[in-house]
Each structure stands twice: as C-alpha cells, then as structure tokens.
Deep mutational scan, measured.
Amino acid sequence: KRVEVKPYVLDDQMCDECQGARCGGKFAPFFCANVTCLQYYCEFCWANIHSRAGREFHKPLVK
C-alpha cells in the first residue's frame, strides 16, 4: 500500500488571490496543486483564474 500525504491542504486559509474580498471573508475551499499555481482560491477566483488559457485543466483539491 501507498499513502499520499498532501500537507499543503490546510484548513482555514484565505483566498490567495482576493484575501476574502470577493467571497465575503469566507475561507478558500480550493487549492490548486499545479506547480504554476500552488495557491488557495475561493470559488469566484478559482473560476476566474482557471478559465484562462493553460489553466483550464487544473484540478482543485477541495477541503
């Protein structure tokens, strides 16, 4: 058996893009583990950032 640990998915993290400004101060539910991102995102910022060319295939890690 093999266990994969993702220590970078933490609870209670603010969106790295808007710092809570676009999501009413809620914590960010998404983390993008792609090396070009490596950031936490609220729903609004995830949709906005990941609609751009080259990022549309990134998969979010959801808390």
Score class of each variant (00 low, 15 high):
L61Q: 15
A47M: 12
E56I: 08
H58P: 02
S51A: 13
A21K: 14
T36H: 10
G24L: 09
C23H: 06
H58R: 01
C18Q: 01
N34I: 01
R2N: 15
A53R: 13
D16H: 14
K6H: 06
R2D: 12
A53S: 13
F44E: 13
C42V: 00
R2M: 11
Q39C: 10
Q19E: 12
Y8E: 15
T36W: 04
A53K: 15
G24M: 05
E43Y: 07
K1E: 13
Q39A: 14
E17C: 12
C42G: 02
A53I: 09
V35M: 04
C15I: 02
G20P: 01
V62M: 14
N34Q: 06
Y8K: 15
G20H: 03
G24E: 12
C15Y: 02
P60F: 00
F30E: 03
G54Y: 07
H50T: 01
W46F: 13
D16F: 15
F44D: 08
C15M: 03
K26R: 11
F31Y: 13
L38D: 10
Y8H: 11
R2H: 04
G20K: 03
K59Y: 04
L61T: 14
T36G: 14
Q19Y: 06
K26F: 04
G54A: 03
K63C: 00
E43R: 08
A47R: 11
V3R: 09
R22C: 03
V9A: 11
F44T: 12
A28D: 03
Q13A: 11
K1F: 05
D12K: 12
S51Y: 07
D16S: 15
D12S: 07
F31A: 02
D16K: 13
H58M: 01
V9F: 14
F30G: 02
G25T: 09
R55P: 03
W46S: 02
C23F: 03
K63Q: 10
C45V: 00
M14Q: 11
P29A: 12
N48C: 11
G25S: 07
S51N: 14
R55C: 06
E4I: 05
G54D: 13
Q39I: 02
K59V: 06
P29Y: 08
H50G: 02
G24P: 06
Q39K: 15
R22L: 08
A47F: 05
K1L: 03
C37K: 01
H58C: 06
K63H: 11
V5Y: 07
C42K: 00
R52F: 10
A47N: 15
C32F: 00
C37D: 01
P7I: 00
Y40N: 13
A33Y: 12
L38M: 15
Q39W: 01
Y40M: 05
A28F: 03
L10M: 13
K6A: 10
Q13K: 15
D12I: 04
C32M: 01
F27R: 11
W46Q: 02
L38Y: 15
P60C: 07
H50D: 03
C15P: 03
A21C: 03
T36A: 12
Q13T: 09
R2K: 14
F44A: 13
L10V: 08
D12R: 07
S51M: 13
F30V: 06
C15G: 02
N48E: 14
F31L: 04
F27G: 10
E4L: 04
A53M: 10
A21W: 03
N48I: 11
Q19S: 10
Q39Y: 04
A33I: 11
C18N: 01
Y8Q: 12
M14G: 06
K26W: 03
F27H: 09
L10S: 14
G25Y: 07
F57L: 14
D16T: 15
P60A: 10
P29W: 05
C37Y: 01
P60L: 02
Y41F: 09
E4C: 04
K59P: 05
L61W: 07
I49D: 06
F30T: 06
H58V: 01
C32H: 00
M14V: 09
K6I: 04
H50C: 02
G20M: 01
C45S: 00
N48L: 12
W46T: 02
A21S: 11
Q39L: 07
V5E: 15
M14L: 07
A47E: 12
N48G: 14
E17Y: 07
G25D: 09
K63D: 02
V5R: 12
E17R: 10
F44G: 12
P7R: 08
Y40A: 07
K63E: 12
L10A: 15
A28Q: 04
I49V: 12
